[in-house]
Design a protein around this nucleic acid. Structure first.
Lengths: 251, 251
DNA sequence: ACGTTAGGTATACGTTTGTATACATCGCGT
DNA sequence: ACGCGATGTATACAAACGTATACCTAACGT
């Protein structure tokens, strides 16, 4: 009962989080998002082009940003705000639901495969529902992750790391993985899951006709990763209960 | 003994594969690679900029390409030629080496964890050695995978699929995974490994001080994936040995 | 009532871009 | 010897770009 949907959320249907933004600034940010919607990269946008799309004077851009990178950062902040909180809530909701269904499940190597499957199924599907509701955010995000601007790349990288950290924390708290799993392994697992999810989100957005397939495949991928991590930890525990486990071979 | 290094390869140290390329064309391609080396995307290059870097007249570009996409495709073809063959050979060499060392290894769920670990260790390290030798290729490749140009994206996607297919084929032939693994699962596994490898290659190239760390982590990732796939297959086999095994839940 | 500041506009300048047309050079088949 | 196609160069031009300067207007504290 520790996790239920928050009660009376105002539910802002779009980017309405940070109020009191100058109207021009908003228009510019929206214009940027709009221009990126069909595959463009943030860094390929021009100052003038942006203003044109926003229906503003080119120079208005300068009132709010010095740089295109600055606009990019602003946009990413907004996106991050839209993603992090809600996604973690989704995870909690899914876990809470699976808590109710407390029937014993098939076990393997000490981990509850059944519950894992169900939680993965739910969270992955909730994730894609979320992607459906915020298409541009993922478009821009994943694109800029490997984009040309170092500033934006770093920001995105940080954002992904935060996201992975949320996953890691939630996995621990909800006990979705064996408690013996080393922290650094859980960290790597969370990172892999994050990257997988985001990459698949892009595919998902770009091939609307394969939505159900991609959802199923992604489920499988995440399950694969989680299982692998759990089993490997198990094996490691059997193999080297004594050795200092430092310094791999010649590398 | 079925797999040894091919005997007398001329070993072209760089892009010398397709001979008889007009000198201007070569210079342009090289210039593009050079300009992409520090984080630029192919699609962000200008026709004139390219010619300038190559020390040529802007119009020379038109002699060889109609479009920037055309140059991109040409470059990607060249890169693909450099990667596919050699990488598969590397895998064979590693597997052959592990065949010699035929000591029995710890088993888990019917798969040879020891041999798996070793093969992963070797192939991942060989992969990164290869990355060291072809930095620009990976830079450009991974970048353009999520880049703005649909043409290049598709080409890259196809290239990745081919690469994954090589992995899949080699895994089958070298019996690195339980023979019960369904074809479509092996396919997904190969895709995941491919994407993981390439993404890590980018990180690897951009953070030279963390080379050894990234190598170790990538090993872990691949091992995680492979183990997960193997175990999941095992579980599935136990769970539904009777059912028609079609149609999971409401997908 | 006044000055200051933020937000938005108008115009202008120099640069770079993509593209077009015309010209020079080399190799090569007949 | 001639022509011709392939390659590379020179020059030119319209468009788009980033940037700078100057002006307009509304809000606000004092």
């Amino acid at each position: 009962m520790s996790a239920t949907a928050p009660p009376t959320k105002p539910l802002p249907n779009a980017a309405t989080a940070a109020a009191a933004l100058a109207p021009g600034k908003r228009q510019l940010l929206d214009a940027a998002l709009r221009l990126c919607q069909d595959g463009r990269a943030l860094s390929s946008l021009g100052l003038r082009e942006l203003a044109r799309e926003a229906g503003l004077n080119p120079n208005t851009f300068y009132r709010h940003f010095n740089d295109l990178d600055e606009l990019g950062l602003c946009l990413l902040d907004e996106i991050a705000g839209q993603l992090r909180g809600p996604l973690s809530e989704l995870r909690y909701a899914a876990a809470a639901r699976s808590e109710l269904d407390a029937t014993p499940r098939p076990q393997l190597l000490g981990l509850d495969m059944g519950r894992g499957r169900q939680v993965v199924h739910e969270t992955v599907n909730l994730f894609f529902d979320f992607v459906d509701r915020h298409p541009h955010a993922f478009m821009v995000g994943v694109r800029e992750l490997h984009g040309p601007s170092p500033v934006l790349r770093d920001a995105l990288q940080r954002m992904m790391d935060d996201f992975a950290d949320d996953i890691r924390r939630d996995c621990r708290k909800l006990e979705l993985l064996p408690e013996g799993l080393a922290e650094h392994q859980l960290e790597q697992l969370a990172l892999l899951i994050t990257h997988t999810l985001f990459r698949q989100a892009l595919d998902y957005l770009m091939q609307p006709e394969q939505h159900t397939l991609i959802r199923a495949l992604t489920e499988e991928h995440v399950l694969m990763l989680a299982t692998g991590a759990a089993v490997l930890q198990h094996v490691d525990q059997l193999r080297l209960p004594v050795k200092p486990a430092k310094s791999r071979d010649q590398r």
